Computed example of a mutant assay.
Amino acid sequence: MKRLYRSLNKIIEAFLVLIFGLLVIDVVWQVVSRYIVGQSSSFTEEFARFALIWLTLLGATYINGMEEGHLSMDFLVSKLSPEKKRKRQRKIQWLMALFALVVMVIGGGNLVYTTSKLGQISPALNVPLGFVYSIVPVSGLIIIFFCLYHITITFSPKAHEH
């Protein structure tokens, strides 16, 4: 499980770098085409929007994969004893996994299904919107895996015995 966890983090990290690099190139091309060439490219705004969707969701997934990498207010949790803190962290991981299942996997899967069934295509890139939105349930599944990893490995009683 640890090997899959590390591999998945590396793959997501590389994909984030790729998306961010493409986004930078896209935005630079938009500026060049608009102000130097004098005619704006039709696909750059749409690509930037889709890249930001993927960058945001994969970035949240990546941060969730890192130990305690999610945004949280831990003032009260930091005052707890190590045992209570570990139990609280496990509860938080279960809640995040539940959220990812209900909202991202089920809700996102419904979004992908609906847009695919309706045959919605993006106007400039001519890409099926079901593909663009597919990152929502995929990110949800990865977040669930990361939560289960943290529950069983990071915040388990065995992890803090030595």
Results as ranks from 00 to 15, higher is better:
Met1Ile: 07
Met1Asp: 08
Met1Glu: 13
Lys2Cys: 08
Lys2Gln: 13
Lys2Ala: 12
Lys2Ser: 12
Leu4Gln: 12
Leu4Gly: 09
Leu8Ile: 12
Asn9Leu: 14
Asn9Arg: 12
Asn9Met: 13
Phe15Gly: 08
Leu16Ile: 09
Val17Met: 14
Val17Ala: 15
Leu18Glu: 11
Ile19Leu: 15
Phe20Arg: 10
Phe20Trp: 14
Phe20Val: 15
Leu22Val: 13
Val24Pro: 04
Val24Glu: 01
Ile25Trp: 10
Val28Pro: 04
Val28Thr: 04
Trp29Glu: 01
Gln30Gly: 04
Gln30Ala: 11
Arg34His: 08
Arg34Trp: 01
Ile36Phe: 14
Val37Tyr: 15
Gly38His: 15
Gln39Glu: 15
Ser42Arg: 15
Phe43Ser: 15
Thr44Ala: 10
Thr44Asn: 10
Thr44Ser: 14
Thr44Phe: 02
Glu45Gly: 14
Arg49Met: 12
Phe50Asp: 07
Phe50Asn: 12
Ile53Asn: 08
Leu55Ser: 12
Thr56Glu: 08
Thr56Trp: 07
Leu58Trp: 00
Leu58Ile: 01
Gly59Pro: 11
Tyr62Thr: 02
Tyr62Asn: 04
Tyr62Glu: 00
Gly65Gln: 07
Gly65Ser: 03
Met66Glu: 12
Glu67Thr: 08
Glu67Asn: 09
Glu68Met: 14
His70Trp: 04
Leu71Gln: 09
Ser72Asn: 13
Ser72Arg: 14
Ser72Gly: 09
Met73Tyr: 07
Asp74Asn: 06
Phe75Tyr: 07
Phe75Lys: 02
Phe75Arg: 06
Ser78Cys: 02
Leu80Thr: 06
Ser81Trp: 05
Lys84Gln: 13
Arg88Ile: 11
Gln89Arg: 05
Arg90Cys: 03
Ile92Gln: 14
Ile92Cys: 05
Ile92Tyr: 09
Gln93Ile: 07
Trp94Asn: 03
Met96Val: 12
Ala97Cys: 03
Leu98His: 05
Leu98Gln: 04
Leu98Ala: 12
Leu98Asp: 05
Ala100Gln: 05
Leu101Ala: 14
Met104Ala: 04
Met104Gly: 00
Ile106Asp: 05
Gly109Ala: 05
Thr115Ile: 00
Lys117Ser: 11
Gln120Ala: 08
Gln120His: 13
Gln120Asn: 10
Ile121Leu: 10
Ser122Trp: 10
Ser122Glu: 09
Leu125Lys: 10
Leu125His: 11
Asn126Pro: 04
Asn126Met: 13
Leu129Phe: 15
Gly130Pro: 12
Gly130Met: 08
Gly130Ala: 12
Phe131Gly: 05
Ser134Cys: 05
Pro137Asn: 03
Pro137Thr: 01
Pro137Lys: 03
Val138Asn: 01
Ser139Trp: 00
Leu141Asp: 03
Ile143Cys: 02
Ile143Asn: 03
Phe145Gln: 02
Thr152Pro: 00
Ile153Ser: 08
Ile153Gln: 08
Thr154Trp: 04
Ala159Pro: 04
His160Tyr: 09
